[in-house]
Write a protein that binds this DNA or RNA. Structure first.
Lengths: 197, 197, 197, 197
DNA sequence: TATGAATGAGATTTCATTCAT
DNA sequence: AATGAATGAAATCTCATTCAT
């Protein structure tokens, strides 16, 4: 765990702190202290605070996307693929090792001001939508999903993931175990898309 | 429009600026300038920046709740009530006069740090969940909605509203008219809850 | 001397410090310490360091111009007016109460980067050229000055003032008393312009 | 043009950047980037920023002096020598290949703080004065120049060069072609020193 | 209630210089 | 000679909040 370069240690600390305290409440000092690194190294390696913020988010996003790719690749039909996508999405978000919260805070669904860095993330995030859209189309083709518009339904389901996830990680509203809440969410999606026999 | 007390002018300016720029980027100076009012009046009337932020959000939230109350009260059955709730939610969010964005930024689904003010909003927001839950229960009673857990389903649907709304007001992802996107969202909800005959 | 507002005290300290140490070596801390005033007052009253720098210079420039106006107004003919202009210019520059050095450092003849503030000073400085030009024209009209182009000669003479003054206040090159050096300078100008009989 | 050692490339870049942006606005990074050379070489070869600044200036000054030597050596009498000195001074300053601006910024007539490096330049600059003084003395001896004090007149004329040059390269005040302005300047000098018959 | 000058802690960013490789 | 990561002091500027008027 100590075989990190100083640049990597900085990114690691950034993921922890931005996730925990958000952008505004996280200072250069906190980051460099936690990373055990000189203050000036932050701008030396990452240019400025915002770039580091998005670098941290992008790192999580890339891991996230590869998990989703795996999950959808293994599915036997479109409906299963969609549900597997959703299950992995939610599972990733509550895994303490993923630093999910950084991504919540700099994703396109957060309220950061637009910036060049944000635009890059915006485009990267479209890969997530695409993965879902592919499964929806596949489900319509194989008859496991009712007829619907794949593009906009992908947005609706992503929206549901975003909202359910925020309910879970930002609010105190999920009574019962979060497992239950996520199970309900999956059931909701299933009812909305699956072709009944 | 000019018959505002200075205190009201401050709240008005706060709704505009917090909505447009967020909490951190909005300063006392900007608010008092926009309101055309002395800087010191801000603490005088509202105590501090955070209290003003939540006062602005609460003002929007109260309007929001009364719109939702109206919408659900008029419904003929549970399913219609739920759909009416959702339609009003989304319509409110794109009405330029409601200052919806402030609420987005200080709602429980945003990533503000916890504080006394936030807790108040948290509790107020439960009225929204309650309105929806009532319609879900009603729909199960009158047979227009499939059997499900009203409490957690209310959370799931609220989550969907939150996510769909963020997609619409924060991201550039809604191709087609936003009307279309919101229509798809309502159809999605309907498929997930309505009892088919 | 103590009946200064804090804003005035800041300008006073700025004139002293910018004059003595130049722009780069003068810090907010030094200025506010010398003025006995809070650090933040500097941006509160003057916006930023550069604006304060030019405010200090403009203050000196305005005093300078009114001295030159007086000096030229009293002259009996054009040649005397020009010489009086030069004498006053040089005298002003070695009067310890005028804070001349600030002006040297932000005048158009210094090497500050262009900025909005600098442009204002640039235009103000043209009043100096104009005063001199008027006397040159007058001298040609009354026969005390040889025929020449008043506009460009005004620039040449101003240039000479700038250079002689810099020799005097920035370099160690003026052997003999500076009085002598300035006397030589005036004699030089006189030889270059006066109509001999 | 590419047959520069890294040390020379550094000096070249320094002349360009210090000339264009001044001392404070020029950073090690900009210099090493422009030179295409590692950052650390700067201190390695030149010790520190100030030494590099003056090394750049001294390089220009040495070229300058040899041009002036040539110009005065060729003159047929003292008056012609002085005018040739002035003409060469001004021509050198507008030749784009000489990097004149660096010298403007670190010459004794600029407002750099005193330092060991500056003292060296100060002494070197005296050679310029000396060249001029020699021609003045020669002109008095050969009768082409009116009786005057050579030492202080050399200072006055150098001052005029400094000021005229600054008018030309730092201010926007020279209307007409700069050629015209420099011609006027030479005529002014001539009137002030030449013995009329 | 109303004003805006005053405060100073704190944040980000810059950058000359060092040094291990 | 050459590299560029690393350091941390220092500078500018921001801004919520206080307070005298």
């Amino acid at each position: 765990m100590k075989n990190l370069t100083k640049k990597e240690a900085l990114l690691q600390a950034a993921k922890e702190l931005f996730g925990e305290y958000g952008f505004a409440e996280t200072t250069f000092k906190k980051i460099s202290d936690r990373a055990g690194v000189a203050l000036g190294l932050l701008t030396h390696h990452y240019g400025n605070k915002e770039k580091l913020f998005f670098a941290a988010g992008m790192d999580v996003l890339e891991n996230f996307i590869s998990v989703l790719q795996q999950a959808t690749a293994d599915a036997e039909d479109g409906r299963t693929g969609v549900l597997s996508f959703c299950r992995s999405y939610l599972a990733f978000s509550i895994d303490p090792d993923t630093h999910w919260l950084v991504l919540v805070r700099c994703s396109p669904y957060s309220d950061m001001k637009t910036s060049e860095d944000r635009d890059i993330m915006l485009r990267k995030f479209e890969e997530v939508h695409h993965l879902l859209e592919v499964q929806l189309q596949r489900g319509m083709d194989d008859g496991s999903i009712v007829p619907l518009c794949p593009a906009s339904t992908a947005q609706v389901i992503t929206g549901l993931m975003v909202g359910a996830n925020r309910t879970r990680v930002l609010t105190p509203y999920t009574f019962g175990s979060s497992q239950d809440f996520y199970t309900e969410t999956l059931a909701f999606v299933d009812r909305a898309i699956s072709a009944r026999n």
